[in-house]
Write a protein that binds this DNA or RNA. Structure first.
Length: 371
DNA sequence: CCCTACGTCTGT
DNA sequence: ACAGACGTAGGG
């Protein structure tokens, strides 16, 4: 354990090298994220580029493994996700190439330690890539067979463990890291693209490279798909920015502009839609005092019925795309009509009718996160 | 019409 | 405070 930190581990692997390199270099999204996806082979790539390439590889394998792993998941847990998935699949207008990549990063619901356990074995723990197109295949292939490359050292990626088989359908976590038992810390150290950030991502999930390119199936299994998308924890998304747990990298707005449009899709899923595109300002919404009046018959007394508040789309929970499947809300979805606890917008939680915009996310604040 | 999820009420 | 249940807004 002591040596877990980046400094100590010495790996001869390229991947490791990359990993180590990452943290220190908060790459700029632009650099790797969307720029030159196709060309990973440049020999004269600068260090950073190399990183990128390698990471890409890892992304792929990770994704692949996810597919595999999740195939067996119980869809019932993510009914909506399934849908979203479908939607997403259809709506992935954004950088085809990028999209695929982006998909790689997802946000797991289990930001909560508690859940971690659960999720580890729970089907809910999902992480998938994105449906559609060869990208997957490529990914799958890579992961499935090639798994080897990046992680031979048996780094958390579960590379060691899963190595290949991944597909058993066990909890991702199972093969994931269990073996090496690399804690989040390690994750960080390695700077796995998908991992850290908010800790939403379970190390294990990325791993294995088990590979199967289930692409198509995903929709069916759906669960997580859409969910994870966009939001991702910034890091992966941005090409592996190493952000501290608390930091959220929001890729908002700029639907047309940037690769980040991804986020917009995320919002879409729930209803935050509009804000993403037109007005960054989320929950604040005009109704302002979005008094809780909304809800059912709550139209309070005489006052004009306030509209239902919407998710801000930028807070952690909002960024989370998949339902944990284990929280009370998820379990009681039918009767409870509530969104997954881990996805419940902070804003909405806050005031049931208080003033608008608490300190957290003012208008357009989100954009700021980019810099 | 169906689904998701917000707001509220109620019970523990 | 939390969980469960319900009515219903809002979107597809």
């Amino acid at each position: 354990m002591s040596g877990m930190t980046s400094g100590v581990c010495v790996e001869s692997d390229l991947s490791s090298m990359l990993q180590r390199g990452a943290p220190p270099h908060p790459h700029h999204p632009n650099h790797h994220g969307y720029g030159s996806q196709g060309q990973v082979g440049c020999s004269s790539l600068p260090p950073s580029m190399l990183d990128y390439s390698a990471e890409m590889e890892r992304y792929r394998s990770s994704i692949a493994s996810f597919y595999k792993t999740n195939v067996n998941m119980n869809v019932s847990n993510f009914p909506q996700s399934a849908k979203l998935a479908a939607r997403l699949a259809a709506a992935t207008p954004i950088f085809p190439p990028t999209a695929a990549r982006i998909s790689a990063m997802a946000t797991a619901p289990w930001g909560c330690p508690d859940n971690m356990n659960v999720n580890m074995n729970h089907p809910a723990a999902v992480f998938w890539g994105r449906p559609k197109s060869h990208h997957h295949h490529a990914a799958g292939a890579a992961a499935g067979h090639v798994t080897a490359h990046p992680h031979r050292t048996g780094v958390h990626q579960g590379g060691g463990v899963g190595g290949g088989g991944a597909n058993d359908g066990e909890g991702p976590g199972k093969h994931g890291h269990a073996a090496t038992s690399l804690p989040a810390a390690q994750e960080a150290a390695h700077h796995h693209p998908m991992a850290h950030s908010n800790g939403n991502f379970l190390p294990g999930y990325g791993g294995g490279g088990g590979g199967g390119g289930e692409c198509g199936g995903m929709n069916k299994q759906g669960h997580a798909l859409p969910d994870m998308m966009g939001l991702s924890d910034g890091s992966g998304f941005l090409g592996g920015l190493g952000l501290p747990p608390g930091v959220i990298v929001m890729a908002m707005g700029s639907p047309g502009g940037g690769g980040i449009s991804e986020s917009s899709s995320a919002f879409q899923m729930t209803g935050g839609q509009q804000q993403a595109s037109s007005s960054p300002c989320p929950s604040s919404s005009p109704s302002s005092s979005g008094v809780a009046g909304a809800g059912g018959g709550a139209s309070s007394s005489g006052t004009v019925a306030k509209r239902k508040r919407k998710r801000c789309g930028v807070c952690g929970p909002c960024r989370r795309l998949i339902n944990c499947g284990v929280c009370s809300s998820c379990r009681n979805r039918k009767t409870g009509h509530q969104i997954c606890k881990f996805r419940k917008c902070e804003e909405l939680k806050k005031k049931a009718g208080g003033l608008e915009r608490p300190p957290s996310v003012p208008t357009g604040e989100a954009f700021r996160w980019f810099f």
